[in-house]
Amino acid sequence: MSSPTPLTKVLIYGGKTGWIGGKMAVLLKENGVEFVLADARCENRADVAAELDSVKPSHVFMAAGITGRPNIDWCEDHMPETIRTNVIGTLNLADLCNERGIHCTVYATGCIFKYDDAHPLGSGVGFTEDDVPNFDESFYSKTKGYMEPMLRCYPTCLILRVRMPISDDLSHRNFITKIVKYERVVNIPNSMTVLTEMLPASLAMAKKGLTGVYNFCNPGVISHNECLDLYTKYIDPTYKYMNFTLEEQSKILKAGRSNNELDSTKLMRDMPEGIVINDIKTAVELCMQRMQKNLTEEYGPLPDSLPKEVRKN
């Protein structure tokens, strides 16, 4: 942990077009924190350096990155573009912030692990912050696996391993919105990140001056089926889904998908006072309750008024 620097001005990369960056901008505004949405592209080192020197932020939030559209399979056919942003861009920003003594929070990923003999499915034994990534079956995850050991070298950098992020809106990035539109899903328990709870936690962690790697997920695991059952309970009682196996799933995907449990011990131990983080099953149910309220207020009685974002066809 570095010495805390008063959080007076934040520069957000990925704030203009990114999902998490945009949510952080809203959160900062609600908390009365001055912030600037970055213009420079992270891979352009000279532009980033000039922007940092012009804005003079006390803290930087790095939420820019390529995950691909409609999913990470895109990265398999766009490797240089993926490296340019996810590796070169992130390292540029971390390096330039370190040179200037600026605290830099990187919203990274925990999709760099898969269940193995030491961390079996259903065992409750999660990967810790010290474990070496063991999943590289997608190019996206491979680049993220490259990044983490290098980011650890920067004493001003906070690296947050986000997984399967969930929100109470209908963003196409929302894990719930994604799986609702699938015809079939795998039923595997995973660590996940409910943004409504976790993004305020990241702000508190930056204020506290925490650095290094953290598993940035709600404690525990939840399965795809459990998520969809809660969706059926609160949003659409008519919704139906089917399961398929990992082997069947692999036939329709270009790249593999990470399934794992991340240990939350370090996160909960170091969490600043006053921050509430629920276990994942409670957090997802509360999220669905908020989504029900939000959708009803915006669109009218559910499920008949559900917008196209959550319809399969």
Rank of each mutant, 00 (worst) to 15 (best):
L11E: 12
A25K: 10
L28I: 03
L7C: 05
K9T: 06
G22S: 13
G15W: 08
K23E: 15
E30Y: 00
G14L: 08
G15E: 12
I12E: 13
V33C: 10
G18L: 12
L7M: 11
G18C: 11
M24W: 14
G22C: 12
K9D: 05
G14K: 03
T8A: 03
G22T: 06
A25S: 15
V10C: 08
T8D: 13
Y13H: 07
G18V: 07
E30G: 01
T8L: 04
L11M: 11
L7P: 00
Y13G: 03
G18K: 09
F35G: 06
E30R: 02
V36G: 03
A25W: 04
I12L: 10
V26A: 12
K23G: 09
Y13V: 01
L28E: 04
I20D: 07
V26S: 12
G32Q: 04
V36F: 05
G15H: 07
L7V: 07
I20Q: 11
G32N: 11
K23A: 15
K16I: 04
K23V: 01
G22Y: 10
N31P: 00
V10H: 08
N31I: 00
V26P: 00
I20Y: 07
K16M: 04
K16F: 05
V36W: 01
V10M: 02
V10P: 02
K9Y: 01
T17P: 00
G22N: 12
W19C: 07
K16E: 10
L7A: 03
V26R: 14
F35C: 08
M24P: 03
K29R: 09
T17N: 14
G32I: 05
I12P: 01
Y13Q: 05
L37F: 01
G21R: 11
L11S: 08
G22A: 14
G21N: 14
V26H: 09
F35R: 03
L28R: 05
I20W: 02
V33N: 09
L37W: 04
G14Q: 05
F35L: 10
G18D: 13
L27P: 04
L11Q: 08
K16A: 15
L7Y: 02
T17R: 14
L27I: 12
A25M: 13
A25E: 12
F35A: 08
M24K: 10
T17I: 04
N31A: 09
L28K: 04
G21T: 13
I12C: 07
V36T: 11
T8Y: 02
E30W: 00
W19E: 14
G14A: 06
M24T: 14
L37Y: 01
E34K: 11
V36D: 13
G22P: 06
E34Y: 02
I20N: 07
L28C: 09
K23W: 05
V10G: 06
Y13W: 01
F35D: 09
I20R: 04
L11H: 04
L27Y: 10
V10E: 05
